[in-house]
Design a protein around this nucleic acid. Structure first.
Length: 470
DNA sequence: AGGTCAATTACGTAG
DNA sequence: CTACGTCCATTGACCT
């Protein structure tokens, strides 16, 4: 099935390019009425939130360049990017290009970060706080999830997309999407390219949009026992902790040498430690008790795109990197001069993700070499490679195949605005979720921990589509 | 080995 | 409906 699919993608791509060229050429001529029927007729839901507080947002924001003039130590944030921003001398140079990586040190109040009308997020904040008071019992955390992981028997055919479950949650390209790990709500948090975080209670029309960061969001991490606290990591080099009780986005980490943070993760059994990837292949352990990194290792030759803990053994972690490899590590053995991976999974191009299956027995990677690979067996020595076109191009977030609710299926976006479902048993794409309601390509996904069949797909236009299982 | 540069081509929105 | 602007990824080709 692979060759015909490749041809189809290639044909579409080439056709796109050709059409663009034709249009360019046609600018000089005058004529043309060839209405190609494509899928641009779909009307996507638009914002329900009013974005009126622009001036408010800009006040607390500090231009990086001015940090020095304000007496802030230069090592807190360098300005290399400003210095060499001209190196990219493309045809366009927008005037506000200089404002990139603008960020405020210290906490930001949720009020200041809120992009809706004044205080209209009051009830949302209160609901977050009440969620945290309630908390989750250990058995609630383990019970259903475990049950689902072992004997999840939902039908792929039952997945459907209700138009109610579509919303534009943030402007622009979504880089991260996460369901709240809660039995009681179907709440989604989404982070975008601009550093916004949007919240959406699936099925409802209200959106709560905040701007705690100034660059692409690279991680959203919930505290399992306290849903009112959410960590966010960002290319701006900051990790913040949204605390709905204090109503702030606190700053818990500031990358020292102006390094981008590309991924954020946490082992299940240790709430004190955050694992983050920064810079060119670095993995750091942030100890919240001391507010500093207790370890910093150079594990890869290029940026680490994902960090994923094995659900069964929390000292085993998988990393995926743009250096073309995915690796598994034993955290107990890392350290010293040389870091040796348990296993290295070589790909022909950069690896965008490496995720353990719910049981922890398999690892799935997604790579720019146009494969989704599944490693299984006692030492993950059995490799299955499934062809999957992963050339998302410049404007889309890269594809990352995620696990569903058991070890049998992977979900990954495709360039035809569908969601490919890869069966690990049949070692092939067995089904593609499609809908006329989808008006853009879903790139990033999350599966609800407690609702089998509830799958969120996020696009580069800010929409989120939530499939449900009836 | 490591920097630089160009090419890629989806989506929302302004007109 | 069409045209414009986006621009923090990735890669290969070319240079030092």
């Amino acid at each position: 099935m692979a060759p015909p699919k490749l041809n189809e993608y290639e044909r579409k791509r080439l056709e796109n390019i050709r059409r663009n060229n034709e249009m360019m050429a046609a600018l000089k001529v005058h004529s043309k009425a060839t209405a190609l029927s494509n899928h641009s007729k779909i009307v996507a839901k638009s914002y329900t939130v009013k974005l009126e507080k622009k001036p408010k947002i800009e006040t607390p924001i500090v231009i990086r360049r001015s940090l020095r003039t304000r007496g802030i130590p230069p090592d807190s944030k360098g300005l290399d990017l400003d210095a060499n921003s001209d190196s990219n001398t493309s045809t366009h140079n927008s005037p506000n290009k200089v404002e990139k990586f603008v960020q405020t040190l210290g906490p930001i109040s949720m009020k200041d970060a809120y992009k809706g009308t004044d205080d209209s997020d009051r009830s949302f904040i209160e609901s977050l706080v009440s969620m945290s008071n309630k908390g989750l019992l250990e058995e609630e955390l383990e019970g259903p999830a475990k049950k689902k992981k072992t004997e999840c028997s939902f039908e792929l055919e039952s997945l459907s997309l209700d138009p109610e479950n579509i919303a534009r949650v943030v402007p622009g390209r979504i880089t991260q999407v996460r369901f709240f790990p809660s039995k009681d709500v179907n709440m989604i948090a989404a982070g975008n390219k601009f550093g916004d975080i949007g919240f959406w209670n699936v099925g409802e029309s209200e959106i709560f949009l905040y701007h705690p960061h100034a660059a692409p969001i690279s991680g959203i991490l919930f505290q399992q026992h306290c849903l009112s606290k959410i960590y966010t990591s960002c290319y701006d080099g900051f990790i913040r902790l949204m605390d709905a009780e204090k109503e702030i986005f606190d700053m818990v980490y500031n990358s020292s040498d102006n390094a981008c943070i590309y991924a954020l993760s946490q082992p299940k059994n240790d709430a004190n430690c955050l694992y983050l990837s920064e810079g060119k292949g670095g993995l750091a352990v942030l100890d919240n008790r001391i507010g500093k990194c207790s370890s910093h290792w150079d594990l890869h030759g290029a940026r680490i795109n994902t960090i994923d803990f094995n659900p069964q053994s929390s000292h085993i972690v998988a990393t995926s990197s743009s250096d073309g490899t995915a690796c598994t590590w034993d955290l107990r053995c890392i350290g010293g001069r040389k870091h040796t991976a348990l296993r290295t999974f070589a790909h022909k191009r950069s690896v965008q993700s490496a995720y353990f299956s719910p049981s922890g027995s398999s690892l799935a990677t997604t790579s720019m070499d146009d494969t989704v690979r599944i490693y299984s067996g006692v030492n993950l020595e059995d490799e299955t490679s499934v062809y999957h076109f992963n050339q998302t191009g410049r404007w889309l977030s890269t594809f990352r195949a995620i696990w569903g609710w058991d070890n049998s299926y992977l979900f990954v976006g495709n360039m035809n605005r569908g969601v490919d479902i890869v069966s690990t048993v049949q070692k092939a794409t067995v089904k593609t979720l499609e809908s006329p309601h989808i008006s853009a390509i879903p790139c990033r996904f999350d599966a609800h921990s407690f609702e089998v069949g509830m799958l969120a797909g996020a696009t580069s236009g800010g929409q989120i589509y939530v499939w449900t299982s009836s």
